[in-house]
Structures are given as structure tokens and as C-alpha cells.
């Protein structure tokens, strides 16, 4: 049987330094194959700086797990390009490219990379182009589900090409949008330049509800996430049949060890696991969020 691997996606939130370090020192003991490290959302989050992330990567790599360094999804300032350059020039770890800037720098260095979910790859031709630039693994964007991946795979094979490693987001809140604006700072009525790093107070993001109280989105600095935590566990038979190589689990503030244990057991079980969080509409070609009964008037 096709053996699937488990990955721990990059931490999307901002946690205090000690909490982050102890989280990863525990996580490295969990039944995971791959751990993504690094800041993907906001360059001002420096409880761990670029050097700290690289040092943590070196420490965790001794476990034998594959460590990947993830990079920012939105790069605006030259200082942010500098951070990216340091990650890539270290050269010891695979890079997750979440922006074309990272693709270009990896390509120039001849370094292979993981194409992260914010890099827009929608078809077999784009995938083939990026593979010739060094793409080794692909994490499709959030809106790409079973049908699109099936069609893409068919097209790749028809072209006589091979597929890269395929990793799908199996568990966590989906990253939906990025902006120049910090929505956490806006909600707390502070300027972005003097934000006081207040997102550290919200280890699972800041909940945003509709005016009738329906939980809807999560504000996470310059990123907006869907409120619902998606769970592709029950879809395991289809994921296997599609040749998915890796299931990505995004870190949450609480209960992550149990989530990893749940998926680890699921991979070793002949029957798909029960659902532990929301169904992912995108996977089924529907709106990403699951409809919720509207509040009674």
C-alpha cells in the first residue's frame, strides 16, 4: 500500500519564544515525518529571528525527520528579502517557497524547493515549468480539491511527465488572504508600525463573527483564515487513490499532539477515521466553508 507521510505545517500564529521552542521540542517526538519551520505571515514577528529558526532546524534535524524552512507569503520590504536570502543561503534545508521571490532565489542557487500553498499553481504546465526550476514537492492552493487534482494528474501523465511529491492541507484553518494591512492592529486600534506585537495575545488568531453571531473568519495579522478547522481524515481512501504523498497538519495552540496521534493511527488503519473537525468544502468542489444553519430571527 502507498505509504503516506505526515507533516507539521509552518506555525501560522505568533507565540512567545519559549512556547514556540517547547512546542517544537515536543513535536519532534511525535509520529511526524516532516516539520516545517519559520515565519510565513509577518516579518515583524521576531520572537524567533531567521537565525533562531535555522538553529532550531539544525537541532530538530538530528531526530532524522525532514526539516523544511518556510518563507514569507508576502514580501514587501528589502529587509524581508534579506531574511529570505539568509534562509536559502544557509543551504542545509529544503525551502518552502510561498512567493515567486523565493522561487527565483532558489532557482538562481540551484536549490530545490517545496511550492507552498500561496504560490499559484493551477495546472500541469505551470507545474512542469516549476519542476524544471527545482520544484520537488507541491502543496496545492486551498481552493484546489479532488477533481482539479485528478485532472491535473491525468494531464501530467498524458504529457509523459512525472508528478512531484504531493502534499495536501489535511488539518487546520485555511489561509485565505494576505494584505499589506495588519487586521489585528486594525481591530485593536493600533498603528501597524507601532503594533506592539499584539497578535501574540491570540495564539489561534482573533475570531471574527458576522453581525448575527456566526463564527466566520480568523484574523491573523496580515493574513485572514477561515474559522472552520478543516479535516480531510475521512477522505483518506480518495487521498490514497489520488497518490497524495503527504498530509499537512497546521499547528493549533492546543491539542496538537492528539491530532497527530489521530492521523498517525488513521494512516495505519484499514478504515478511514471519524471526522474530528469540519468537512473541507473546497475538496469537494464546493464553497470552502460549510454552511451553518442561520440564526433564528
Amino acid at each position: 500500500m502507498h505509504t503516506m507521510k505526515l507533516s507539521l505545517g509552518p506555525l501560522q500564529y505568533f507565540w512567545p519564544r519559549e512556547r514556540t521552542l517547547s512546542f517544537y521540542r515536543e513535536a519532534v517526538q511525535w509520529p511526524l515525518d516532516i516539520i516545517y519551520l519559520g515565519e510565513t505571515v509577518c516579518s515583524k514577528r521576531r520572537q524567533l529571528g531567521t537565525r533562531d529558526w535555522i538553529a532550531l532546524a539544525a537541532e530538530l534535524a538530528e531526530s532524522g525527520k525532514q526539516i523544511v524552512l518556510s518563507s514569507l507569503a508576502l514580501i514587501e520590504a528589502e529587509s524581508e528579502l534579506g531574511m529570505l536570502q539568509r534562509l536559502i543561503e544557509d543551504g542545509r534545508f529544503l525551502i518552502e517557497a510561498n512567493d515567486l521571490s523565493a522561487v527565483q532565489l532558489c532557482k538562481a542557487r540551484g536549490a530545490s524547493f517545496v511550492a507552498g500553498p500561496s504560490l499559484n499553481v493551477y495546472n500541469h504546465r505551470a507545474l512542469a515549468l516549476l519542476m524544471s526550476d527545482g520544484l520537488q514537492r507541491w502543496v496545492p492552493g486551498v481552493e484546489q480539491g479532488e477533481t482539479l487534482l485528478r485532472e491535473l494528474r491525468t494531464a501530467v501523465l498524458a504529457d509523459g511527465l512525472g508528478m512531484p511529491e504531493l502534499e495536501v492541507i489535511a488539518f487546520g484553518r485555511l489561509p485565505l488572504a494576505y494584505s499589506a494591512r495588519c487586521f489585528t492592529a486594525r481591530a485593536l486600534d493600533v498603528a501597524k508600525d507601532q503594533c506592539g506585537f499584539r497578535c501574540i495575545e491570540h495564539p489561534d488568531g482573533l475570531p471574527l463573527a458576522t453581525r448575527e453571531g456566526q463564527a466566520f473568519l480568523r484574523i491573523n495579522g496580515i493574513q485572514v483564515q477561515g474559522e472552520q478547522i478543516t479535516d480531510l481524515g475521512p477522505e483518506l481512501p480518495v487521498l490514497r487513490e489520488l497518490g497524495i504523498d503527504i498530509l499537512r497538519l497546521y499547528p493549533q495552540a492546543e491539542g496538537m499532539q492528539d491530532v497527530v496521534a489521530h492521523y498517525d493511527l488513521a494512516l495505519r488503519s484499514p478504515t478511514p477515521p471519524p471526522r474530528i473537525a469540519s468537512r473541507n468544502g473546497y475538496w469537494h468542489g464546493e464553497p470552502g466553508m460549510q454552511p451553518v444553519a442561520t440564526a433564528q430571527a
Binding site: N120, V142, L176, A177, S179, P287, G288
Partner: peptide, 21 residues
């Protein structure tokens, strides 16, 4: 557009229809 163009799935999260696709 307040979000980075090409990187916004707010519409598709709610309706299934996105600017990109």
C-alpha cells in the same frame, strides 16, 4: 482590493467562485 491580488480566497470560501479561477 485590500488583499494581495491573486492571493484572495474570501469569495470562494463563501461562494465557491474565486477571482483566480
Amino acid at each position: 482590493c485590500i488583499m494581495v491580488e491573486g492571493r484572495c480566497q474570501l469569495s470562494s470560501y463563501v461562494t465557491g467562485a474565486s477571482p483566480n479561477r
